[in-house]
């Protein structure tokens, strides 16, 4: 652990906000940032780094629209303090396509029309990428259950399952 008690101590709760240096790798690029302790990963991405692909649907872990991958695990960026991620690697929806090629999950979402308004979509896609990495879902019932942390008010669930299923079958994972 590089961090120690003293070098991250900051702010006294009343005075000027003090910023804390953190190093984050975001979509493959190392970023040295100074953040306030109360800045969430989601607000950091959206408001400071102009990575607005990650969405704010509730800001309380109730909808999954902010889902990103932190060290390859899907998490809710709205309930993650940026300062706590020092040293972590973050992948957002903007980081999934490689060399201009859509990630297979992105392509499957378009093909199966697995969204309408598109607002929950980046979270759904990051969540699906996380689900595929986890390898816990085999059946459609398991896909449904393990995608239930991502609400879609447009009701695209049938198509989301179809999209995830297609990628799962295509990569030999599942069933």
């Amino acid at each position: 652990m590089q961090a120690t008690e003293t070098d991250t101590r900051s702010g006294n709760g009343t005075g000027e906000p003090s910023r804390i240096p953190v190093v984050l790798t975001i979509n493959g690029t190392e970023r040295r940032l100074e953040v306030e302790p109360w800045t969430t990963l989601l607000d950091l991405l959206r408001e400071r780094l102009d990575l607005t692909g990650s969405k704010k649907g509730c800001d309380h872990g109730q909808c999954g629209a902010c889902t990103v991958l932190v060290d390859d695990r899907r998490v809710n960026a709205c309930l993650t303090l940026a300062v706590m991620l020092d040293g972590a690697s973050v992948t957002t929806v903007e980081g999934l396509a490689q060399d201009g090629q859509l990630h297979p999950v992105q392509d499957a979402f378009v093909e199966h029309d697995a969204f309408q308004c598109g607002y929950c979509t980046p979270g759904q896609i990051c969540s699906a990428v996380g689900l595929l990495k986890e390898g816990r879902a085999q059946s459609d019932d398991e896909i449904r259950e393990l995608m239930s942390g991502n609400l879609c008010r447009c009701g695209a669930y049938v198509n989301i399952v179809a999209a995830v299923r297609q990628v799962m079958d295509g990569t030999g994972a599942g069933r």
Binding site: M1, A3, T8, G11, I20, W38
Partner: peptide
């Protein structure tokens, strides 16, 4: 969210002391 300070101790004893 209110203002708060942040510490990241690396040992249990230090964490308990902070609290």
């Amino acid at each position: 969210m209110n203002r708060f300070s942040y510490v990241r101790p690396d040992a249990v004893a230090a964490a308990v002391r902070e609290r």
